[in-house]
């Protein structure tokens, strides 16, 4: 499902998707280190994305039954839902994915984030 949010190879740079940026490891760290309300929120967001999003486009859940195009349509319906709580949860899911994705050194380099003197993960640099 996370690879539907940010798939690999749809842009030349960054070409990485969320999974290639280390989502699984990040998710494990998030479960260990995030405060309780964020952990619970992410679990609820994942539940909603998997089990509720397909219903919004008239499909039977879970979302994993479907190909990429349908999954994208389901998640877009979640993002644009009239139900505030669903939008909030989807926003939290995107935020969590972004916390992983935007921290990836290759992604940062591809989007023009400058070299930082104290970055232990830096790619290249002056």
């Amino acid at each position: 499902m996370v690879d539907t949010l940010l798939p690999e190879g749809v842009q030349p740079a960054p070409s990485r998707g969320a999974l290639e940026a280390g989502w699984e490891e990040f998710h494990r760290a998030f479960e260990r280190q995030a405060v309780g309300r964020l952990r619970l929120g992410l679990r609820a967001a994942l539940f909603v994305a998997i089990w509720v999003a397909p219903v919004l486009i008239g499909r039977v859940p879970p979302i994993t039954l479907y190909g990429r195009e349908t999954r994208e349509r389901a998640l877009e319906a979640l993002e644009r839902s009239r139900v505030y709580a669903l939008r909030q949860l989807f926003g939290l899911l995107k935020l969590t994915v972004a916390l992983c994705y935007g921290a990836d050194p290759e992604v940062r380099q591809a989007i023009g984030y400058p070299f930082q003197h104290d970055d232990p993960h830096r790619v290249g640099g002056p």
């Binding site: 949010l5 940010l6 877009e76 992604v107 989007i111 023009g112 984030y113």
Partner: peptide
């Protein structure tokens, strides 16, 4: 914003989100 927070703020999912991310700079 940091790259992470800017990316989170960008609209879209899938290829649409990815395309917006390429415009970050």
């Amino acid at each position: 914003l940091s790259p992470e927070m800017l990316i989170a703020r960008l609209p879209g999912i899938g290829p649409r989100w990815a395309r917006n991310i390429t415009q970050a700079s």
